[in-house]
């Protein structure tokens, strides 16, 4: 479902990723870990095509990013749910509108949008915050909204960049439980984290990045 072959990315003189290769099977919940600056966020940006690799091939959700035309990038992104490290919520829109945006972009009718948004809000336990604005919510709540927005489009692959950063243990568990439920439905999930506790109990596959290189790949 996610395959990288000798992928490299550099920014001016700095090498962000060097010859990274791995495969994540369909329906797997995998983790990518490593210290800050290891290349986790760069890897994610390459996966959802915010950046293009300088070398190598990436295949994700059935798309080969090397041959993908510019006009088809939205199609790829509709198949990937992304939980951004900085949330990327629209602070001038309500929680409901933030989540509904994913479906409105796809031209889904308002009635179906309402049903699906309410369903994911229930799943992340924030049904009562539907009319609130993101900045009035706690960090954990905002993170759950971001997850709800990522899953409402029923993606085949989900990427979560530090989804529990700065959250307490209770919120961490709540968010990991949501990921487990999504994964149980068959969605491939790749989570970037440097929190060992997260992947110790859950992961089938852990990728260790350091200085832009894949230094270890653990399969359980």
């Amino acid at each position: 479902m996610i395959t990288l072959e000798n992928v490299s990315k550099r920014y001016e003189t700095q090498e962000a990723l060097t010859k990274v290769s791995f495969t994540i099977e369909k329906g797997t919940m995998a983790f990518v870990t490593g210290p800050s600056g290891a290349g986790k966020t760069t890897l994610f940006k390459l996966l959802y095509l915010a950046e293009k690799p300088d070398e190598g091939h990436i295949s994700i959700a059935g798309f080969n990013t090397a041959t993908l035309r510019e006009s088809s990038i939205p199609l790829l992104r509709r198949n990937i749910g992304v939980v951004f490290q900085d949330f990327k919520l629209l602070n001038n829109k309500t929680v409901y509108d933030n989540i509904a945006l994913t479906l409105r972009i796809r031209g889904i009718m308002e009635r179906e949008t309402k049903e699906r948004v309410n369903s994911v809000l229930k799943m992340v336990n924030l049904r009562h915050k539907s009319d609130s604005y993101p900045l009035t919510l706690s960090g954990g709540e905002q993170q759950r909204i971001t997850i709800a927005r990522a899953i409402v489009g029923e993606p085949t692959v989900m990427l979560a960049d530090e989804p529990t950063g700065n959250l307490d243990a209770e919120n961490e568990d709540a968010i990991m439980n949501i990921f487990k439920r999504i994964n149980a439905k068959g969605t491939t999930i790749l989570i970037a984290t440097h929190n060992k506790r997260l992947y110790d109990n859950t992961a089938k596959k852990v990728l260790y990045l350091d200085c832009g290189r894949l230094v270890k790949e653990a399969i359980r």
């Binding site: 939205p74 990327k88 972009i105």
Partner: peptide
Amino acid sequence: DEIEIYRLLGATKAF
């Protein structure tokens, strides 16, 4: 910023 989010969520240029 809003447009960047739209694009990341899969919005086409036409949208």
